[in-house]
Write a protein that binds this DNA or RNA. Structure first.
Lengths: 192, 192
DNA sequence: CTTTCTTTGGAGCAAGCGCCCCAAAACGAT
DNA sequence: ATCGTTTTGGGGCGCTTGCTCCAAAGAAAG
């Protein structure tokens, strides 16, 4: 195990990835050019390609980072939620998540829609993410004492999650998002 | 009123538009190049630009055509449906609509997601379409005798419509679409 | 200091993009 | 047959794309 020599990096990888997440989130993958990244990340294309290999490689790294962000803000709270209140709060957090800043929806779901099944790797990652959210909803229902038709109700809630995302992505302003949020809350309350 | 002279078109506009709809539907707007259109529509780019002005112009014309298609297949049945059965049938027809052929979701909703609020014209058209679907759901509920919380329930159903679309677009195969379909049916049945 | 290794900036490449130009073609009108 | 008008095909233009090449720079190891 020898220490390697060479010129050190002039940037912090995580900071750069945060900015990449921000750009991919708002503009999508295809519409974000390597020149856009160059100026937004503050590093040259040389450094970008040296560090991440390709635009796709950078996107995957950004996706990892995004998943951790969404894990802390949305998934973990949902997976540890007790009662229907926890699920209700998840939807509130979700609505805030997809409308904050210049954001438009969830980066992963946007990516899934943009990809349209073209890239296998994106396909697998988004599929895994979908399953995780759906299962978390089902488990939260079970923990809340909802045992009849828990699977179907989880699918129902999951559909609303996707609906909220696509409406946020479509850019209808937050009013349509709040309508769907209220509808989801109404549904949850009807199960009390 | 004089009759115009000149060389006649060698193609039928509606046939060409049908093929354009098919391409834009499957591949999206951005990923469909004018060369793709040239070979798929069977006409040269010259004819394409002469007839439709631009790629965007062709897309708008294709959008008009698509709206008529979806009107006949989905909207009109929904707008004239009686009872909850009609709404249930709408969802079945929707699920078939977004998974048929090599299709992936609804062309308009895909376009909305792809656009992400960038183009104002697409924004307006998709907003109008969303409202129409949502209002049709509400009216159908009222016609079915569901008068309490009709608005909220329409939003709920509309969220499921969007969810079904985005899952179909994501390309999870038809199994996930059918899960969401079953969930929507379950919801509707719970209102009987 | 010299060597060794990596990173950095800048220029640039091949390919693809939407779109345009223009001569030839194909019709109706005269 | 000749004109006026529109469509058609082919070539090509200017631009952007993701990506690469390479000399210079910067730090650790000897």
């Amino acid at each position: 195990m020898t220490t390697t020599a060479g010129r050190p990096r002039s940037f912090d990888t995580d900071e750069v990835l945060d900015r990449a997440v921000d750009l991919f989130w708002r503009r999508g993958y295809r519409d974000t050019t390597t020149r856009d990244l160059e100026s937004a990340l503050g590093i040259s294309q040389s450094s970008l390609y040296n560090a991440f290999g390709s635009k796709q490689g950078l996107m995957e790294a950004a996706l990892d980072r995004y998943e951790k962000l969404t894990e802390d803000a949305l998934l973990t709270p949902l997976e540890t939620a007790e009662g229907l209140d926890g699920i209700s709060e998840f939807f509130e957090a979700l609505a805030a998540w997809v409308t904050g800043d210049g954001r438009r929806g969830c980066m992963i779901i946007n990516l899934m829609a943009e990809n349209g099944g073209a890239d296998d790797l994106v396909d697998k990652r988004t599929r895994r993410y979908r399953r995780r959210v759906r299962d978390a909803l089902r488990d939260a229902l079970l923990r809340a004492g909802i045992e009849s038709h828990a699977e179907v109700r989880a699918d129902l809630l999951f559909g609303e999650v996707l609906g909220i995302n696509v409406v946020a992505r479509g850019g209808a302003g937050s009013s349509e998002v709040e309508r769907l949020l209220a509808a989801a809350q109404h549904l949850i309350n009807s199960w009390r």
